[in-house]
Design a binder for these strands. Structure first.
Lengths: 207, 207, 207, 207
DNA sequence: TTATAACCGAGACGGTACGTCTAGTCTTGTC
DNA sequence: GACAAGACTAGACGTACCGTCTCGGTTATAA
């Protein structure tokens, strides 16, 4: 089997890469993922198709990198210095901190520039295990680890049972929100996320 | 706008419909959703393309109906008479009942004949709101309502706080499983689902 | 080989046949032969497709009968009693008679209701030998025989050489007109047809 | 109206063009014009459909160019140097020259590789005025002009009346042959074409 | 006078081809 | 050698008709 020699990344055009990211994100927002095509991205970016095929293996791959790039830019632009380590606030009141973060997540999930590409990546991952591994390791898991850290701190402070696994525990409030958003099984609201925090922390069974 | 007259469903070929369902499901399992085409379904079913376009509006639409049909068949074939009302068991022990059902769900989620089409429907819904509404109302919500009923019974029995909303509460253990499966954010196992039931019922905070 | 039993023509619907003729002719005039379809004819005639397939073997076949019917109607409506035997006038002046008939032919060839179906039949015949045999025997040859008769009369009157074959001779003036019209190799005009009569009767070589 | 940008003909694949010509001609000969499809041509030529649609506007258009190309090749292969100017022989005996050429034409008209595509082009032209203009200007008229030249030479030599129009005169013997062939109104033979030359040159009326 | 068989309008069916669109590869000329 | 441009083979899209078939309904002889 003849292996195509890897392209020389030192000679890569930064301008083209940026144009491709912008075009891919814009098309997904404007036309939807299904109607976004490699040809369309190339045309909008003013780039040859081969330049896309040289550096990425699929439409989804382009979009993943474009979205990661967007997230980075966004984080740099918005975050205050103390949020730059990009954690979940720790005011000592776990419930309040979680309510705050989930409310912020709701806001972000409804912002079209994030929503459209996020959905595209998620959909691709649902159906393509290999791609899902990329999405999880580069996008989802890093975010979930922030919750793990906050929950571990809460365990140290005695606010969370010591026999629970933080990696599972976070799913009690994160996954319901994720599923409602992804599968549209219900509306998103602050009341909803507040309730999730309450139920998750104190359980469904009477005390 | 010119409206095509609706086809006469009384003259519809039952044989063709069945063949289309079978072909669609088989192709999704064998080749994957992305490589499943209307043309391929028609060819495999021994049917003209127009027969598909006459009765369904898209590949996803075909698959949804095929899957609903499959579920019906499966339910009829497998269910014992008392399960035929198709509920969640109520032995009086809520935790045990939920553990049982979630373990069964894990088994089903890993069965290829269910997994492949389920993922396809989910992925389409993630990206297409209109289709998602169909999936939710015809597939997901009916299943979720079974949990609502069981939780209400548990409230009556005093096993669940009276101030919680069952429709939200069920998400504490269902959504984590759904998300791990859909997005592949973690492995599925009986230990995992057992833990979910425990955490959800008794909360994360110490008693 | 199982032979389909011939349909019972005594029970045939005259109304449908007329409607089919009208629809076929109208569509060929309005939309052109290529865009005229059996389905279109059936729809316009308010007739089931099977009613067409029952009585005719092809689109061309329908059109041939429709055109023959039209010609009959036209002949009955227009012809004076003495023309009803439908011959070429014989005033004793062969050249004048031919000039008259060819001028009338030019007029008819340019009339859309005749032109469109005539062209369609001709085109089909060019490419389909079996159909051409129908067209020749039912449409073209009967008309050409009128020239044969007139030329034979002219031979008897001594106006035409006795050693010529009238069936060939008539082509000297008829075929040029036919070809100009069919293949559009030149314009049709009275001057042109007058010239044809002159050249044909008296030859190209100097006397 | 949005105009598709014209493709860059300098980058056109010569190999594909040749393959398309060959496939088109072969299919018309083997299967007939009606059963020759763009898809079939593409498949036989080992070419994408788009490559045909990029360079031609219709099946008829492909065939016209294929036939012109064939004619060129044929002319180069067969013609002796002196025939390469490709005229009608001028031995001084007009009648003999015309008899010779018309006999050769009969032979060619009956050769399947020429007959099938010629008929297809003629049939299309009968029904499509715009296409007919192409056929006439690129195929028919150049051939007819050869007769015009020969007849003008004959006029100079005193063998043809000076008051006749050669462009019309040639039709006296060419059009009958053309019509018999096209519309199959009669058999083709050397006796027939010889008679046409005789009648046309010396007229039908007695001398 | 009914029944019964054909024609009839309607249109669903298995197919085939249309003309368009995009995938992914390859080629050409520019920087 | 990366790049913009775009021609190439391949094949799916959704539509339009083909010619066959099945369905009720409506006549028009034959029982």
């Amino acid at each position: 089997m003849v292996q195509k020699p890897a392209p020389d990344s030192t000679r890569r055009s930064e301008k083209s890469r940026r144009a491709i990211y912008d075009a891919a994100l814009a098309l997904v927002v404007e036309a939807g993922y299904a109607k976004t095509t490699i040809e369309g991205i190339a045309a909008r970016a003013g780039v040859g198709k081969q330049t896309i095929y040289r550096w990425w293996s699929s439409k989804a791959d382009v979009l993943l990198e474009a979205f990661l790039d967007l997230s980075e830019q966004y984080a740099e632009a918005v975050a205050t210095p103390e949020e730059l380590q990009y954690g979940i606030p720790d005011t000592g009141d776990l419930a309040a901190d979680l309510r705050y973060v989930l409310r912020a997540t709701v806001d972000q999930l409804l912002e079209p520039k994030f929503e459209a590409p996020s959905r595209a990546l998620a959909a691709e991952g649902v159906v393509d295990a290999q791609f899902a591994a990329q999405v999880v390791s580069r996008l989802l898991e890093p975010q979930l680890q922030l919750y793990v850290q906050r929950l571990k701190a809460a365990q140290d402070a005695g606010d969370v049972r010591h026999d629970i696994d933080p990696r599972i525990a976070l799913e009690l409030f994160v996954s319901p929100l994720a599923q409602r958003w992804l599968q549209r099984t219900g509306p998103l609201s602050y009341e909803y996320t507040d309730a999730l925090v309450d139920y998750a922390l104190y359980g469904l069974a009477p005390r």
